[in-house]
């Protein structure tokens, strides 16, 4: 009998002691992981509060333009720097290959950040914190975010979105 040949007629034999032990340990581990996933989510409060809505691309672009117009406080390299009201709704539109604004947020304040795309799929990757979200056109992805440390953060697109993908780097400024 080998793994390459047909086994003898009756191969249904009981597990030996070592095998039973290994399977028991492996099963216990699998169950631990199973419940662990539920547990860590609940205890560790790990799951980001997110909501999703359907949105039309033109509509979201309008919301972003209005938002930028209302709260722009300056520009950097031709990109508007926008300071939203504390705790308000924030609109960030990804398009090939730029972000609609540089956001200026306040430490310790929760914002509802609406993410969407005007064309392709993009990635929202906050660096160096390393938080990553997938952005799709026609979906309004609302992430509730509370900056916990002042400083400058990069918003890197980390979903391939065409030849200029690697140039798609934006910024979030967190003030005290």
């Amino acid at each position: 009998m080998s793994s390459l040949a047909s086994p003898e007629k009756v191969w249904w034999k009981p597990l030996c002691r070592d095998e039973r032990l290994w399977v028991a340990v492996a099963l216990a581990w699998s169950l631990f992981m199973f419940f662990g996933m539920l547990g860590w989510g609940a205890i560790g409060n790990q799951h980001l509060p997110v909501e999703t809505y359907r949105v039309n691309i033109g509509e979201f672009r309008q919301l972003t333009n209005d938002f930028n117009q209302k709260y722009t406080v300056g520009t950097q390299n031709g990109v508007p720097v926008v300071r939203p009201p504390e705790g308000g709704d924030v609109y960030l539109l990804a398009s090939a290959w730029k972000w609609s604004s540089i956001l200026e947020l306040k430490e310790g304040v929760a914002y509802r950040i609406h993410l969407s795309s005007a064309d392709f799929q993009h990635g929202f990757s906050l660096q160096p914190t390393n938080l990553n979200f997938q952005i799709l056109p026609e979906y309004d992805y609302v992430v509730t975010l509370t900056p916990d440390k002042a400083g400058e953060y990069q918003v890197v697109c980390n979903e391939f979105c065409g030849p200029g993908h690697n140039l798609m780097v934006g910024k979030i400024i967190v003030t005290e």
Binding site: Q154, E159, V169
Partner: peptide, 13 residues
């Protein structure tokens, strides 16, 4: 360290 995949260079960021 956060380096994205499928990205030509990370110099810009």
């Amino acid at each position: 360290l956060g380096v994205p995949r499928r990205t030509y260079d990370i110099a810009a960021s």
